[in-house]
Design a protein around this nucleic acid. Sequence first.
DNA 1: TATTGTTATACTCTATAACTATA
DNA 2: TATAGTTATAGAGTATAACAATA
Lengths: 151, 151
Amino acid sequence: MKEDQIETGFRDVIADRLGYVLRRASGVMMGALGTALAAIPLRPVEATILILIGENTGCTQSEIGRVLAIKRANMVPLIADLLAKGLIEKRPVDGRSQALSLTPQGLVQRDAAEAIIHAHERRFEALLPPSKVAALRSALVRIAAEGDEEG
Amino acid sequence: MKEDQIETGFRDVIADRLGYVLRRASGVMMGALGTALAAIPLRPVEATILILIGENTGCTQSEIGRVLAIKRANMVPLIADLLAKGLIEKRPVDGRSQALSLTPQGLVQRDAAEAIIHAHERRFEALLPPSKVAALRSALVRIAAEGDEEG
DNA sequence: TATTGTTATACTCTATAACTATA
DNA sequence: TATAGTTATAGAGTATAACAATA
């Protein structure tokens, strides 16, 4: 890193900032997950919603939005796409709420997504000393929790 | 966290995934930085570019784009905005390259941005045990470096 | 009154393709 | 041939406002 800076003559003074490396690391993991999930094909957010519905049969799209910090209005096209792909089903419970569940095809896709995500997680965990992985996770959870207090 | 899941009845099975907490933590820090920099007012990317130009007088916008992983085409409006705000200057070196530098007003804004970013970094570092901060940084750098190999 | 689902809309960020002028 | 800067454009992701139906 330092050698690169001397070679190119460019002083990358922000490379050691926590916020910056956090953003870059997040982008790298998200990009890699997107590439891995393209084999199914599902986007990371679609795979995540599928998994959450699988573990919470009968939940609503508003509940999922709250968990994932996605606004109600932005959940609409996401759920519509999964519905159009035949991976989930809607069933009215209220006059205003609709229970979500996985179709048989959705179950298959969910399992495939889980396998890909599991491999993806292991791949990146393997970059670090095993003893450091839990510390990284808890540090990130602590930082992420700082957002719940404000917004 | 576990207690929350039991209270709400919602099984948030992705909350412990590295990629997910990484994305959430990054969003929280970026959002907080955006809020803090609104006092100037500069966006995080503008403040970052200002700082890089200050440390690399005479560099080109293409060089900055390479460092920040921003495509040439997307650098154009960013540089144009900083130019319109009177914070930077362009001076032709080649027929095709233009050297960037800070104006006196840009220097003032750069210093203000540095102070805000410094306080922001310290605020989030203070959430963690001091001994864990360096480990977090190096883990994130290791993960971010995995992106340089692919794309 | 508050919530669910929805529509419409706008803004940011990111990506590609294509062009020019130059090295 | 490769690079710097630019234009146009398209796709995500995210934000707000407003509405109808329901609790």
